[in-house]
Write a protein that binds this DNA or RNA. Structure first.
Lengths: 217, 217, 217, 217
DNA sequence: CATGAATGAGGTTTCATTCAT
DNA sequence: CATGAATGAAACCTCATTCAT
């Protein structure tokens, strides 16, 4: 019976950038599992396979570490969504592709999503801001689509319409559905996106009347 | 010669139910301010004007206390929404009235809402369940409306539709808009509800085409 | 063989003031032995027979604790010296009695003296200030004696004289001799004071010429 | 084409003696600023422009390093004082010149003085010894002067006199005045020395009677 | 009933020191 | 020779929880 377990103690020497990525990966995983407060630096260091002083030396205190996680994951998510949108298509298709990209990201980087959505909002203002920036950017993308289409008809004038508020709502709906998906993963990202399109693009009323939105590509 | 001066540090003896309410009120306030983990039993006991052993004696450990907060506030919220709905009206008006009741509750019991929405999700599965129960009930209310209307037309048949999923989305949109409202309080609950109705009842498409939903009562 | 050792664990409940004194006593002892930085809260709590949280609850963090030690011991020392001086006597006898009181204090509260003289000066400005205040008060006492006598003769005018500077020097000499005494304790406080009197009152020159100062009471 | 640019992070290879001096200089500066315990090897290595392993390789652990600082600075100070004394002059002038040399050293090597006087005493017995040796040597110089003069008159006989004790006192006075000087630097070293001479050579009594000591050269 | 007093356990952070390149 | 990378050990501090009055 050979000794498979790596002897604990001194870790292999790796370049700093690699170690930082290792640590951030571990941190995202642990923060996702326990939340900011319950996560312990001990567990993060254990998961990362690195001693605690390395973490402090490379990424700073717990707060800094968390902020860096948030920032990295937020950047990734936003990038994924932006890359998914095809600006040459009509607005509804852009929205649909953006939503699909979002759900693919959630499926692939479950921990990232959990940290961003569930944990970052509760630690008090300083991190909420980081996430707010992300949401704001996401909302802007949506709002641009909606408002662009809407203003053609002078919708900005009527009290029943508010571009930002509708965008906020849509983003909230998408997030909520993402959470639900985590427990009902037997649906494809395309179907999820279609559901949302039918909700926000057509609305219940049209659905009730038998109209259905379907991707045109 | 009776002793009129209240001995400092020793509270008047009060019936148990009153004490429990005092404590729960304080707990909701503190949990709302700091979140579950950062909230300290010391602060709760201070805000409640009651010594810590009383809390443990009446409501149990921190976890129990939090769970009881969640349950009480969730009950209040659901009750408020149920009371707001007028079942004699058509589905869209029911939805509109339900949403208004929800926003009135959020405005009036801001701490309750914060605890339910922001804090309860982060404490790991144990409390998420409590909140899930609440959301499920809220979603059921919505789903009943939607599905009732929808099944008339056989909507359950097409893949683009899922009653529960749409309900989840709507609830998420409503929550998200509630959060947004906390920072943009210069809008009435009726307007908020109308915005949401235009999103989910009519959809972007109809809006763009110039149709607008307005409460019919 | 009966069990003599007090079972560790819960300490007897004592009124807060008593515990605070216990803790301060222990802290002075430990700070005296190891200095501010090397002293550990663990050792202090052990010596005090109290758990660490009590220390933090009653006297605050390490810095606060140290400051409180300094302030208490400085007050004691100054009080002892003031009480020793008999203002009805002539200046030289006042000085002599003040010095004796000082040495008696050093002998009786060795730890206090060590903390005040050796440790407090090295921790950086914030505590040095506390001690500087003490020294300043001591120096003022001396300077008052010296200058009172000196100004009669118009000594303030000549460059070779500076009341404050001479007082500083005398205090330094007294402190230095106190340190020396800690390792040569076979001399009485009266003799120590006499040596100093012969140094600062008569000076080497008079000594060389055979004059000697002796207490006149 | 030779590589002219100094690779960052890698220091030029220098003879060992130079490196050791660099390191000791940096150590004295840092120890003087923060004290023994608060000084970090990191800061020392940074100030020295040398990596930490070099320090350990050349001068040993922190304790060794500190001891070597003390020893070097003590040697310098003693040498300066010895060089200042002119043995061909009468005892009082020797003392005066010695004091002047001492104050000039303090002014020029402020860090050295701080380390010797303030920091070395607090680290527990281990370094106090090093400093004690220095003080002892300084005291010996003074004591020799005093005793030489004093024994002419048989001063050793009376209880009111102790050569070593008086020397200790004088050194203490000189040190104390040096510290005072650090905050009142607008006085020349000659004036400082004169003040001390008036204190210890003439004494308060003679001063009050109008006698003043002045350098005779 | 009500509380001040008390603590075990655990978290974050820092630092002197050494190994392997 | 010189160093970046790595860590064991230990310090400070806080908090949920309970006992004894």
């Amino acid at each position: 019976m050979t000794e498979e377990v790596k002897a604990p103690g001194r870790a292999r020497r790796l370049p700093r950038a690699v170690r930082e990525r290792q640590i951030l990966d571990a941190a995202v995983e642990v923060f996702s599992r326990h939340g900011y407060h319950s996560a312990s630096m001990d567990e993060i260091s254990e998961v990362a396979g690195v001693s605690k002083p390395m973490i402090y030396s490379y990424l700073g205190a717990k707060e800094d570490l968390f902020a860096k996680c948030i920032r990295r994951e937020a950047g990734r998510l936003l990038e994924a969504v932006r890359a998914g949108i095809r600006t040459e298509l009509p607005p509804d298709m852009q929205l649909w592709h953006g939503l699909r990209a979002f759900y693919r990201f959630v499926a692939e980087y479950r921990d990232s999503w959990t940290v961003l959505h569930r944990q970052a909002l509760t630690v008090g203002g300083q991190f909420a801001d980081e996430v707010t920036v992300l949401r704001t950017k996401a909302i802007d993308i949506v709002a641009t689509l909606v408002v662009t289409a809407g203003t053609k008809q002078g919708l900005g004038q009527v009290a029943e319409f508010s571009g930002p508020a509708l965008a906020v709502s849509l983003v909230g709906a998408a997030e909520s559905l993402a959470d639900w998906w985590l427990d009902h993963s037997d649906v494809s990202d395309g179907v999820l996106a279609s559901w949302l399109m039918n909700l926000v693009w057509l609305g219940f009323n049209d659905l009730v009347e038998g109209q259905v939105w379907r991707p045109a590509g």
